[in-house]
Structure formats: structure tokens, C-alpha cells
Design a protein around this nucleic acid. Sequence first.
RNA 1: GGGACUGUGGGGUAGCUUGGUCCAUCCUUCGGGGUUCGGGACUCCGAGACGCCAGUUCAAAUCUGGCCAGUCCCA
Length: 475
Amino acid sequence: MADLPPKETAFIDWYLAVVEAADLSDKRYPVKGMNVWPAYGFRARRNLDRILIRETEASGAEAVEFPALIPATEFAKEKEHIKGFDAEVYWVTKGGLTDLDIPLVLRPTSETAIYPIFAVWVRSHRDLPLNVYQIVNTFRYETKTTRPFLRVREIHFFEEHTCQANEAHATERVGSNLAAFRRMAEAFALPYLPVRRPEWDKFPGAFYSIALDCPVGEARTLQLGSIHHYRENFSRPYEIRYEAADGSQQYVHQTTFGLSERLLGAIVAVHGDGKGAVFPSAIAPYQVVVIPIPGSDAGEAPLRTAGEVADRLARHGLRVHLDGGDERPGAKYYRWEQAGVPLRLEVGRREAESRSLTSVDRLGTKGRVAIDRLEHEVPERLLDFDRALRARAHAAFVESFSVAGSLDELAGSTRVRVVSWCGSEACGHRIETAIDGALLGTPEEPLPIPLGAPGPCVACGASADPRWAVAGRPL
RNA sequence: GGGACUGUGGGGUAGCUUGGUCCAUCCUUCGGGGUUCGGGACUCCGAGACGCCAGUUCAAAUCUGGCCAGUCCCA
């Protein structure tokens, strides 16, 4: 088996090799950017979705589902929005052999599918807040190179859409989305930074956009998702109004929260290593793999014991896989490490006789697990593993930021840079040119490195109203 | 939108300059047999490819043209 390219010096080659070796996505489907979910990758995606669903519903939203096709007339109602998406939508212009009188857009995102119906659903202040989400596929005609999970044309998309009574309530919803994402990221063991995007880079039609950015090394960042405050920007063109308690008609203030399978890409990118993928236990397709080690002198005991172990763990609710194949144990170790399984249990003659298993987690920590206390000890090992994984990721996260005191320092940077910025677009663009990337925006939460008060703007030197901003190179 | 480059089994490749020695090399993968089994086993047998369409030629993976797909750089 060929070794993986080095993650440090050939990141994207490494990433693609891991995705393929771990059987997470099959990119051989003959449409660019539209990939197949094989069984193993699909398990990871389903586990990921479960967490999104759990945390979103805990934050007070309900699942709905809207159609995939949007009439051109509805799509065109919000002018910034259509301008932002025009170049990347797929059109359905024919029904059978007949040209459609109103062409249909295959949703690139669902605002314009949902909001005409919101206008019907929302009549009274008693209908508010209206918090709904859907997990559906959306389509964007990407022209750049596509990458499994990171940049695709058919997106497995989570989108929450809400209507609130006023701007303050909408701002609160943004806060509860941030809190929900914090809990999701805990399960993914992914460190991230919420960043308010600069004006020129916000979502088309938004009042403001908060991106959830995750550093992945070499100054590169991945946007994991985004939360938008729309104010009345959509409710006015779509006429989403309600009658307030005082009898007046008011436009709702809206928010959205979007995530995608890019989260899976981030999990691979952040946690993976020279051996392959590394899954946090909440996402892992298999949390535990049990490997029997036959041996010439061992008889049936290892296989029988391995079966017992796997059965009991499965009954206990763990995702466990018994690898009883003909390969030698070493080959299995390599394969399951590549596939990112958090915990491996080995069962040979010694283990069968002593009723005590050898455990090795994906970060290399070895231990023993008493078979009599399986149901207690295995979950404990998984918790230890998750903790260690989180600590490793957090250490890398802290390492990935550093302050830059001048534009010159930005060139060729291998970190995400924190700069003092006056807030002007002109200076923002100068910063972007200097780092050959993007001014990601202003952090919404404290940065993981010690910072004093911001000094004069790195671009223009003005000292009026400076703020810390982060600049990087989006992947 | 402009330019450069690339397409060989499931994955990765050799061959292309100078057409023939190629019913296409090697690694991996896959199916089957045997010996094995505490960190990528060995061995035997077998499967599987020249992006598509034309053209040149006695002869095309190799040369020419068009198309398709992809990658990178620039706007």
C-alpha cells in the first residue's frame, strides 16, 4: 500500500489521499463536484447530521423541507441576493420537450424558496419566533477546482431560517446559533473562531454575516459555516409581515445559519495525520474495531471472545465492527488506522485466557480493558481519546495565530495573522493583497492568543477606532 | 473570459521526443488455491487500461485536427 503524501508539505494531496483511502467519498462520478457517498463515508455524514439535528432542535428549531426548484420570479426578488448567486445557479428551463414559461432555479440556498411561504405562515406576533431548519442538497455551479467535502457542486446543506419580531430578537437568535455551534464543535473536537465578515464579503442580502473559521495550517482557513442577520432585507421584498400586539403591521427580522459536509472535510483536515483519518468518537463510522488474532496455538478462543466482545458493545449502543477477515492482524491495524477508528481492541490467546483485552486508541495510547467491565471501560477509553484529540487540536489552533505588526510581515505568512485595522475597505484590500488572501473579519469571540489594545491600522497607520482583525488564506 | 499543461486497468505509473521490438511496464487493487497469522506475509493461478471522433500511414498509446474532461496560472 502506498504511503500518504506528507500532510505538512503537500496538504491537498494528503487530504485527497486520505479521503480516498478511508473510503469517505467516491469522486469518480462523471459530473465535476458531484461525488458519491459510499457506505463508510455515509455513516460519518449521518453521525454528523445527528449532532446538527440534536443541537439545533435543542436550540428551539423544527425540521421542515422545501422544494428544490425555485421559480425565477421568486429567485429574483432580493436584488443583492440574486447578484451574488447569479453566476453559480443551475437552471431548469425545460419540462420534457417544452420550454418552461417561467424557468426554475435549482436551489443554491433556500431563502427564495422558503420566504414566499413564510409570508403565508406568519400573520401574528403569536407566530413568532418561527425557527425552522432543513437538511437538503443544494447546487452551485462551481467553476474552480472541486474537492470532496470542501468545494462541491452538490452540497449536503444544513440551513436554519428564522423570523423574529424585531432586530434585537434576531440578534439573540444569532447568539443561540453561536451557542449551538459551540456544542456541535465540541462533539467534532474542532476549534474555530467566529468572525464577522467585512462588508464586502458578507452573504448576498445579509445585514451582517458571522463566519465560523477554522485554521488548517499554512495560514489556510476553512469556513465551517455561517450565521447571518438579514434584518428586513428579505422580509420586505417577500412581504413577511405580522400584526403586532398593538395592532400595527411589522416586518419580521430574519436570520439564517448554514453548515455543510465541509464539516466532515474539516474533521479530516484538522485531526488527520500521517496514518490517515482520525475521527472523534461522535462522528466515527465505527467507534471500536475488534480484531481477533488467531495464532497457530490459540484455537477458537480468540475468535469466540472477539465475537462476544463485539456483541456486548453493540448491545450497549456502541458502533462496533468485528474484523474477522483473513488478513493478518498488522494489515488490519493499518487499514483501520487509515479509516480513523478511535479505538482498537485486540483479542489473541493471551487476552482470551486472561479475560483482559489490549486496547490501542487512534492516537497510540495503549491500555488494557477487563472483559467483565467492557461496557464501562470502553466508553471511558473513548472519552479519554476525545479529550486527547481535542487537546491536540486546540494546541494546533493556538499555534496557528500570530500578530502581524505591518503589511510586510504578511507576505508568505504561514500563520493566520491578527492585525490592527481601521475598518476601511481600502485598507482591508491592502491587507488582502499583502497576505495574498482575505481579510476574514473581526473576531466575535476572544482570540486564543494574548492581545493588548489594537495599535494604529497596519495599512494606513490611522489610530482612530482601530480593531483587531484576522487575515488568512481561505482554502 | 485569456493563457499553459494533462488525459494509459478500480488507484498510481512506464512507454510518446525518433510510429513497428506493445495482443502495453511496474506497484497497488480485485477473484481463486495453498502455506501462514501478536504491526503492511509468501507463493501459484486468474481479472482489469491507451478520454472520444476523424485523419495521415503498410502500421498509431506514440503524429495531425476537432471535441470532451480535468489541472494550474492570469482577469
